[in-house]
Design a protein around this nucleic acid. Structure first.
Length: 327
DNA sequence: AAAGAGGTCAACCGCTCTTAA
DNA sequence: GTTAAGAGCGGTTGACCTCTT
Protein backbone atom coordinates (compact mmCIF):
# COMPACT_ATOMS: atom_id res chain seq x y z
CA UNK A 1 0.00 0.00 0.00
CA UNK A 2 0.96 3.62 0.17
CA UNK A 3 2.00 5.93 -2.54
CA UNK A 4 4.07 5.01 -5.45
CA UNK A 5 7.31 6.95 -5.50
CA UNK A 6 7.36 9.99 -7.73
CA UNK A 7 10.67 9.09 -9.26
CA UNK A 8 11.41 5.38 -9.18
CA UNK A 9 15.08 4.97 -8.51
CA UNK A 10 15.49 1.84 -10.58
CA UNK A 11 14.61 3.75 -13.71
CA UNK A 12 17.40 5.11 -15.85
CA UNK A 13 16.43 8.73 -15.49
CA UNK A 14 18.70 11.61 -16.26
CA UNK A 15 19.84 13.51 -13.25
CA UNK A 16 21.82 16.62 -12.70
CA UNK A 17 22.02 19.70 -14.84
CA UNK A 18 19.55 20.04 -17.65
CA UNK A 19 20.88 20.28 -21.17
CA UNK A 20 19.78 22.91 -23.68
CA UNK A 21 18.04 20.21 -25.69
CA UNK A 22 16.07 19.01 -22.69
CA UNK A 23 15.08 22.59 -21.97
CA UNK A 24 13.82 23.06 -25.51
CA UNK A 25 11.84 19.84 -25.41
CA UNK A 26 10.20 20.75 -22.13
CA UNK A 27 9.49 24.30 -23.20
CA UNK A 28 7.95 23.18 -26.46
CA UNK A 29 5.81 20.57 -24.76
CA UNK A 30 4.44 22.99 -22.18
CA UNK A 31 3.76 25.63 -24.81
CA UNK A 32 1.52 23.16 -26.57
CA UNK A 33 -0.02 21.22 -23.71
CA UNK A 34 0.28 23.62 -20.81
CA UNK A 35 1.50 23.06 -17.28
CA UNK A 36 0.43 20.28 -14.97
CA UNK A 37 0.39 16.50 -14.94
CA UNK A 38 4.13 16.60 -14.53
CA UNK A 39 4.52 12.87 -14.41
CA UNK A 40 3.01 12.64 -17.86
CA UNK A 41 5.03 15.55 -19.15
CA UNK A 42 8.25 13.62 -18.85
CA UNK A 43 6.81 10.54 -20.53
CA UNK A 44 4.97 12.28 -23.33
CA UNK A 45 7.69 14.75 -24.09
CA UNK A 46 10.20 11.93 -24.24
CA UNK A 47 12.32 13.33 -21.46
CA UNK A 48 14.23 10.94 -19.27
CA UNK A 49 13.45 13.01 -16.23
CA UNK A 50 11.11 12.55 -13.34
CA UNK A 51 8.01 14.72 -13.16
CA UNK A 52 9.21 16.68 -10.23
CA UNK A 53 12.40 17.50 -12.01
CA UNK A 54 10.42 18.80 -15.00
CA UNK A 55 8.24 20.91 -12.77
CA UNK A 56 11.20 22.37 -10.95
CA UNK A 57 13.04 23.14 -14.14
CA UNK A 58 10.00 24.87 -15.59
CA UNK A 59 9.12 26.87 -12.51
CA UNK A 60 12.62 27.93 -11.61
CA UNK A 61 14.18 28.44 -14.98
CA UNK A 62 12.09 28.08 -18.12
CA UNK A 63 8.84 29.72 -17.08
CA UNK A 64 8.19 33.07 -18.78
CA UNK A 65 8.70 36.11 -16.62
CA UNK A 66 11.58 34.73 -14.60
CA UNK A 67 13.78 37.62 -13.65
CA UNK A 68 17.47 36.98 -14.02
CA UNK A 69 20.35 38.86 -12.55
CA UNK A 70 21.28 40.23 -9.18
CA UNK A 71 18.82 40.89 -6.43
CA UNK A 72 18.39 44.63 -6.15
CA UNK A 73 18.64 46.61 -2.93
CA UNK A 74 14.89 47.06 -2.90
CA UNK A 75 14.33 43.38 -3.37
CA UNK A 76 16.78 42.54 -0.62
CA UNK A 77 15.05 44.92 1.72
CA UNK A 78 11.74 43.32 0.92
CA UNK A 79 13.14 39.83 1.41
CA UNK A 80 14.45 40.79 4.83
CA UNK A 81 11.16 42.29 5.86
CA UNK A 82 9.17 39.37 4.61
CA UNK A 83 11.50 36.86 6.18
CA UNK A 84 11.21 38.65 9.45
CA UNK A 85 7.50 38.31 9.12
CA UNK A 86 7.09 34.89 7.58
CA UNK A 87 10.21 32.95 8.41
CA UNK A 88 11.54 30.43 5.92
CA UNK A 89 8.45 30.25 3.81
CA UNK A 90 10.24 31.04 0.62
CA UNK A 91 7.35 30.52 -1.70
CA UNK A 92 5.32 33.13 0.14
CA UNK A 93 8.23 35.52 0.06
CA UNK A 94 8.77 34.82 -3.62
CA UNK A 95 5.13 35.61 -4.22
CA UNK A 96 5.84 39.20 -3.28
CA UNK A 97 8.81 39.47 -5.62
CA UNK A 98 7.60 39.21 -9.19
CA UNK A 99 9.89 37.15 -11.38
CA UNK A 100 11.85 35.68 -8.51
CA UNK A 101 11.55 32.05 -7.51
CA UNK A 102 11.44 30.58 -4.05
CA UNK A 103 14.60 28.64 -4.79
CA UNK A 104 16.43 31.76 -5.84
CA UNK A 105 15.36 33.68 -2.76
CA UNK A 106 16.21 30.77 -0.51
CA UNK A 107 19.66 30.54 -2.04
CA UNK A 108 20.14 34.28 -1.82
CA UNK A 109 19.15 34.28 1.80
CA UNK A 110 21.43 31.42 2.69
CA UNK A 111 24.41 32.83 0.86
CA UNK A 112 23.98 36.54 1.48
CA UNK A 113 21.45 37.88 3.89
CA UNK A 114 21.53 35.06 6.39
CA UNK A 115 25.25 35.38 6.63
CA UNK A 116 25.05 39.11 7.19
CA UNK A 117 22.53 38.62 9.92
CA UNK A 118 24.67 35.96 11.48
CA UNK A 119 27.56 38.37 11.55
CA UNK A 120 25.32 41.08 12.87
CA UNK A 121 26.63 43.67 10.52
CA UNK A 122 24.73 44.44 7.36
CA UNK A 123 26.48 45.52 4.22
CA UNK A 124 27.13 49.22 4.75
CA UNK A 125 26.24 50.01 1.17
CA UNK A 126 22.78 48.73 1.74
CA UNK A 127 22.35 49.72 5.34
CA UNK A 128 20.22 52.71 4.55
CA UNK A 129 17.53 50.48 3.26
CA UNK A 130 17.65 48.09 6.18
CA UNK A 131 16.02 49.66 9.14
CA UNK A 132 15.43 46.76 11.45
CA UNK A 133 17.86 44.07 10.49
CA UNK A 134 17.90 41.59 13.34
CA UNK A 135 21.17 41.08 15.12
CA UNK A 136 22.75 37.69 15.48
CA UNK A 137 21.98 37.35 19.16
CA UNK A 138 18.66 39.10 18.97
CA UNK A 139 16.54 36.37 17.55
CA UNK A 140 14.16 36.70 20.45
CA UNK A 141 13.30 40.19 19.38
CA UNK A 142 12.67 39.08 15.83
CA UNK A 143 9.09 37.99 15.88
CA UNK A 144 8.08 35.60 13.19
CA UNK A 145 4.37 35.31 12.88
CA UNK A 146 3.25 31.95 11.68
CA UNK A 147 0.35 32.27 9.37
CA UNK A 148 -1.51 29.59 7.54
CA UNK A 149 -1.02 31.35 4.27
CA UNK A 150 0.84 28.53 2.73
CA UNK A 151 -1.29 28.61 -0.36
CA UNK A 152 -2.07 32.17 -1.09
CA UNK A 153 -3.96 32.08 -4.31
CA UNK A 154 -6.28 34.98 -4.22
CA UNK A 155 -6.46 38.51 -3.06
CA UNK A 156 -9.83 39.80 -2.08
CA UNK A 157 -10.56 43.46 -2.33
CA UNK A 158 -13.68 45.40 -1.75
CA UNK A 159 -15.31 46.89 -4.74
CA UNK A 160 -16.81 50.04 -3.32
CA UNK A 161 -18.25 51.76 -6.29
CA UNK A 162 -20.65 54.52 -5.62
CA UNK A 163 -20.61 57.44 -3.20
CA UNK A 164 -19.68 56.88 0.41
CA UNK A 165 -22.07 57.68 3.15
CA UNK A 166 -20.08 58.22 6.33
CA UNK A 167 -23.02 57.60 8.59
CA UNK A 168 -23.81 54.33 6.94
CA UNK A 169 -20.48 52.67 7.10
CA UNK A 170 -21.80 49.29 8.14
CA UNK A 171 -24.37 49.20 5.38
CA UNK A 172 -21.65 50.11 2.98
CA UNK A 173 -19.71 47.11 4.14
CA UNK A 174 -22.70 44.92 3.54
CA UNK A 175 -23.15 46.31 0.08
CA UNK A 176 -19.54 46.07 -0.84
CA UNK A 177 -18.85 43.48 -3.47
CA UNK A 178 -15.63 41.59 -3.21
CA UNK A 179 -13.27 41.43 -6.11
CA UNK A 180 -11.10 38.38 -6.18
CA UNK A 181 -7.89 38.44 -8.12
CA UNK A 182 -5.73 35.43 -8.66
CA UNK A 183 -2.49 36.14 -6.90
CA UNK A 184 -0.61 34.22 -9.52
CA UNK A 185 -1.47 36.94 -11.97
CA UNK A 186 -0.48 39.79 -9.75
CA UNK A 187 2.19 42.17 -10.84
CA UNK A 188 3.65 45.21 -9.25
CA UNK A 189 2.01 48.27 -10.59
CA UNK A 190 3.23 51.73 -9.76
CA UNK A 191 -0.25 53.02 -10.41
CA UNK A 192 -2.10 50.57 -8.22
CA UNK A 193 -3.30 53.43 -6.10
CA UNK A 194 -5.46 54.63 -8.90
CA UNK A 195 -7.12 51.37 -9.80
CA UNK A 196 -10.83 51.96 -10.03
CA UNK A 197 -12.73 48.75 -9.63
CA UNK A 198 -15.99 50.29 -10.59
CA UNK A 199 -14.70 50.23 -14.16
CA UNK A 200 -14.49 46.48 -14.13
CA UNK A 201 -17.32 44.15 -14.72
CA UNK A 202 -17.35 41.45 -12.10
CA UNK A 203 -18.90 39.06 -14.54
CA UNK A 204 -15.95 39.34 -16.88
CA UNK A 205 -12.35 38.41 -16.49
CA UNK A 206 -11.03 41.86 -17.13
CA UNK A 207 -9.75 42.62 -13.68
CA UNK A 208 -6.56 44.60 -13.43
CA UNK A 209 -3.33 43.10 -12.26
CA UNK A 210 -1.85 44.78 -9.24
CA UNK A 211 -0.61 44.38 -5.75
CA UNK A 212 -1.28 46.59 -2.82
CA UNK A 213 1.93 47.92 -1.43
CA UNK A 214 1.86 48.60 2.24
CA UNK A 215 4.10 48.55 5.26
CA UNK A 216 3.69 44.89 5.93
CA UNK A 217 5.77 45.02 9.11
CA UNK A 218 3.56 47.65 10.58
CA UNK A 219 0.51 45.58 10.04
CA UNK A 220 1.75 42.24 11.15
CA UNK A 221 4.02 43.24 13.94
CA UNK A 222 1.75 45.71 15.61
CA UNK A 223 -1.70 44.99 16.80
CA UNK A 224 -3.03 42.16 14.74
CA UNK A 225 -3.95 39.33 17.02
CA UNK A 226 -1.85 36.20 16.81
CA UNK A 227 -4.96 34.06 16.86
CA UNK A 228 -6.26 35.98 13.94
CA UNK A 229 -3.02 35.50 12.10
CA UNK A 230 -3.28 31.79 12.67
CA UNK A 231 -6.81 31.62 11.40
CA UNK A 232 -7.36 29.46 8.40
CA UNK A 233 -9.66 31.55 6.29
CA UNK A 234 -10.13 28.83 3.78
CA UNK A 235 -12.46 27.26 6.32
CA UNK A 236 -14.86 30.11 5.92
CA UNK A 237 -18.08 28.78 4.45
CA UNK A 238 -18.32 31.78 2.22
CA UNK A 239 -15.12 30.66 0.53
CA UNK A 240 -15.96 27.03 0.52
CA UNK A 241 -19.29 27.63 -1.10
CA UNK A 242 -18.63 30.53 -3.34
CA UNK A 243 -19.43 28.48 -6.38
CA UNK A 244 -23.06 29.03 -5.61
CA UNK A 245 -23.10 32.69 -4.86
CA UNK A 246 -24.28 35.33 -7.17
CA UNK A 247 -21.47 37.81 -6.95
CA UNK A 248 -18.12 36.89 -8.29
CA UNK A 249 -19.01 33.39 -9.25
CA UNK A 250 -17.54 33.87 -12.64
CA UNK A 251 -14.55 35.80 -11.44
CA UNK A 252 -13.63 33.77 -8.42
CA UNK A 253 -14.38 30.22 -9.33
CA UNK A 254 -13.72 29.80 -12.98
CA UNK A 255 -10.32 28.34 -12.38
CA UNK A 256 -9.10 25.16 -10.87
CA UNK A 257 -8.12 27.20 -7.82
CA UNK A 258 -11.72 27.55 -6.70
CA UNK A 259 -10.97 25.91 -3.40
CA UNK A 260 -9.41 26.60 -1.11
CA UNK A 261 -9.47 30.31 -1.34
CA UNK A 262 -7.49 32.45 0.98
CA UNK A 263 -7.87 36.01 2.04
CA UNK A 264 -4.59 37.66 1.44
CA UNK A 265 -3.18 40.06 3.93
CA UNK A 266 -4.69 42.95 2.12
CA UNK A 267 -7.93 42.56 3.96
CA UNK A 268 -6.35 42.46 7.36
CA UNK A 269 -5.83 46.12 7.63
CA UNK A 270 -5.56 47.89 10.93
CA UNK A 271 -6.38 51.50 11.57
CA UNK A 272 -2.73 52.40 11.54
CA UNK A 273 -2.23 51.11 8.09
CA UNK A 274 -1.47 53.60 5.44
CA UNK A 275 -2.37 52.29 2.08
CA UNK A 276 -0.79 54.24 -0.67
CA UNK A 277 -3.50 56.76 -0.81
CA UNK A 278 -6.35 55.79 -2.97
CA UNK A 279 -9.93 56.61 -2.58
CA UNK A 280 -10.69 53.30 -4.19
CA UNK A 281 -9.48 51.57 -1.05
CA UNK A 282 -11.14 53.87 1.39
CA UNK A 283 -13.32 51.10 2.70
CA UNK A 284 -10.38 48.88 3.46
CA UNK A 285 -8.24 51.41 5.18
CA UNK A 286 -10.52 52.12 8.12
CA UNK A 287 -11.52 48.51 8.61
CA UNK A 288 -10.38 47.20 11.96
CA UNK A 289 -10.09 43.50 12.48
CA UNK A 290 -13.31 43.36 14.42
CA UNK A 291 -15.10 45.43 11.83
CA UNK A 292 -13.90 43.12 9.16
CA UNK A 293 -15.30 40.13 10.94
CA UNK A 294 -18.49 42.02 11.58
CA UNK A 295 -18.69 42.34 7.87
CA UNK A 296 -18.30 38.60 7.55
CA UNK A 297 -20.88 38.12 10.31
CA UNK A 298 -18.37 36.33 12.44
CA UNK A 299 -17.91 37.36 16.03
CA UNK A 300 -14.45 37.50 17.50
CA UNK A 301 -15.61 35.07 20.20
CA UNK A 302 -16.16 32.54 17.50
CA UNK A 303 -12.89 33.51 15.95
CA UNK A 304 -10.87 32.86 19.06
CA UNK A 305 -12.62 29.58 19.67
CA UNK A 306 -12.86 27.63 22.87
CA UNK A 307 -9.90 27.12 25.17
CA UNK A 308 -11.10 23.64 25.98
CA UNK A 309 -10.32 22.36 22.54
CA UNK A 310 -6.90 20.89 22.63
CA UNK A 311 -6.55 19.31 19.25
CA UNK A 312 -4.58 20.99 16.55
CA UNK A 313 -7.61 22.09 14.63
CA UNK A 314 -8.70 24.25 17.54
CA UNK A 315 -5.84 26.57 16.79
CA UNK A 316 -7.59 27.43 13.62
CA UNK A 317 -11.06 28.47 14.59
CA UNK A 318 -14.03 27.12 12.84
CA UNK A 319 -15.86 30.10 11.49
CA UNK A 320 -19.44 30.17 10.51
CA UNK A 321 -21.45 32.59 8.51
CA UNK A 322 -24.95 32.43 7.08
CA UNK A 323 -24.59 31.13 3.59
CA UNK A 324 -27.17 33.45 2.14
CA UNK A 325 -25.05 36.40 3.18
CA UNK A 326 -21.84 35.14 1.82
CA UNK A 327 -20.38 36.20 -1.44
C1' DA B 1 50.59 27.97 -12.31
C1' DA B 2 48.62 24.83 -9.08
C1' DA B 3 46.06 23.43 -5.22
C1' DG B 4 42.93 24.03 -1.70
C1' DA B 5 39.16 26.70 0.42
C1' DG B 6 35.09 28.84 0.16
C1' DG B 7 30.93 30.47 -2.34
C1' DT B 8 27.05 29.90 -5.43
C1' DC B 9 23.05 27.95 -7.15
C1' DA B 10 20.58 24.34 -9.83
C1' DA B 11 18.75 20.23 -8.71
C1' DC B 12 17.40 16.56 -5.65
C1' DC B 13 15.00 14.59 -1.64
C1' DG B 14 11.53 13.65 1.49
C1' DC B 15 7.75 15.26 3.37
C1' DT B 16 2.98 17.42 3.60
C1' DC B 17 -1.11 19.12 1.58
C1' DT B 18 -4.75 19.05 -1.97
C1' DT B 19 -7.68 16.95 -5.10
C1' DA B 20 -10.32 13.64 -7.37
C1' DA B 21 -12.10 9.08 -7.89
C1' DG C 1 -14.45 8.24 4.50
C1' DT C 2 -10.49 6.25 2.07
C1' DT C 3 -6.94 6.10 -1.12
C1' DA C 4 -3.60 7.42 -4.45
C1' DA C 5 -1.87 10.76 -7.66
C1' DG C 6 -0.59 15.39 -8.29
C1' DA C 7 1.39 19.41 -6.61
C1' DG C 8 4.07 22.20 -3.68
C1' DC C 9 7.24 23.17 -0.01
C1' DG C 10 11.68 23.75 2.57
C1' DG C 11 16.07 21.55 3.58
C1' DT C 12 20.08 19.62 1.65
C1' DT C 13 23.48 18.23 -1.71
C1' DG C 14 27.04 18.51 -4.94
C1' DA C 15 29.00 20.27 -9.22
C1' DC C 16 30.99 24.14 -10.75
C1' DC C 17 33.10 28.61 -10.19
C1' DT C 18 36.02 32.10 -7.95
C1' DC C 19 39.26 33.50 -4.73
C1' DT C 20 43.34 33.01 -1.95
C1' DT C 21 47.74 31.32 -0.83
Amino acid sequence: MGRSPCCPKDQSLNRGTWTAIEDKILEAYIKIHGEGKWRNVAKRAGLKRCGKSCRLRWLNYLRPGIKRGNITNDEEELIIRLHKLLGNRWSLIAGRLPGRTDNEIKNYWNTNIGKKILLGRPNPTKASAIVELPKANASASCTVIRTRATRCRKVVLMNTSGPQEPHDHHQQQLDAKPVVVESSSLVHDENHGTVDFSKYNLEENNLPNFTIDFEIDKIFLSEIDFDLMNADFSKLPCFENNNNNEVGSSTTCDTDHSSPAFIDHALLVSKETELHGSEDFQLMAPLTVSEYFDWLFVSEDTLHGSEENSDDQSKYPTLSAPKDRCF
